[in-house]
Amino acid sequence: MNNGFNPYDPVRARLIDIIDESPNIKTFRLEPEREFSFKTGEFIQLTLDGIGESPFTPSSSPYVNDRLDVTIMKAGYVTEKIHQLKGGEILGIRGPFGRGYPVEKFYGKEVIILGGGCGLAPIRSLLFELLEQKEKYKKVTLCYGSKTPTDCIYKPMFCDLNKVENFQCYRSVDVADDTWDGHVGVVTTLLDQINFRLENAVVVVCGPPVMMKFGTLKLLQIGFDPKDIYLSMEKNMSCGYGKCGHCMLGDTLVCKDGPVYTYDEVKNYDHIW
C-alpha cells in the first residue's frame, strides 16, 4: 500500500453534473479518473485546486465506483467556491476515510433513520446500501426534517422509496405556511407517529448538531439503548487519516474511529454538540 502511495495526493475527478437540491444545497456528480470505491458513511476530502479542501460523505451508492455524488451545503469559504462551479472542472478527492455505517449490525432489525437538512446526504448513500440488500432488514423507516418545504433535498427520492416494500418515508418541516399540507414540527415529532419495536430497532441520526442533540435526547426518552443510536459526528478534519489532530474527540479521532459513532461511545465526552 505504501509503494509510491501518497495519502496527500488527491485522485483527480471531473465534475460532470450539478443538481440543484435547495436554495443552498447542490449535488455535484464527479467522475474520478480511476475507480474509487467507498463504504457507506465513510468520508472523502474534496479538493478545489488551490482553494482548499473539505470533508464530505458521498451521497451516492457505494455500489457505484465510477462516479460519485457529493451533496454540499453552502456554508463556508470552500463550499461557497464549490457552489460557483459550472461543470467540467477537475477536482481532487482523497480517501475514503473513517468508519462508516456498520450495516451488518442492522441485519434482521428495524432501521429507523432520523435525518435533518443536509444530513440527508450520507443517509441517501446508506439508503442505497440498504436497498441493495433490502431483504436483510426487517423494516426501514426514514424520518426527514427540513426547516421549510423548500429546504427539503432529494424530493423525488421520497416517492420512490415509499413504493419499496418495507421502506417508509416521513417528512416534516419546522415551520410552514398554508401551502404545505404535510407534517409540521421538528423532525423528532415524527417519531411519535411511527410504529416500531423498540427492542429490535436501531436508529441512525444525521443532521446539523442542534438536530443531533435534540434527536438523541428524544430517542433516549423513548427508551433507546445508547448502543443502538448511531450518530454522524462533524469535525474539522484536515488530513483525514488520523495524523493532523484536528478532529480529536476525547481519546478518539473522528476521521478514524468515526465519523459514525454510537451514542454510547461518545456520551461521556464534553462538547459533542
Binding site: 416534516s172 419546522d174 415551520v175 410552514a176 405556511d177 398554508d178 404545505w180 407534517h183 409540521v184 414540527g185 415529532t189 411519535d192 407517529q193
Partner: peptide, 10 residues
C-alpha cells in the same frame, strides 16, 4: 406574516 404553522397533531 400571516399564519405560521408549527406543529401537527395526530
Amino acid at each position: 406574516k400571516g399564519r405560521i404553522n408549527v406543529g401537527t397533531i395526530y
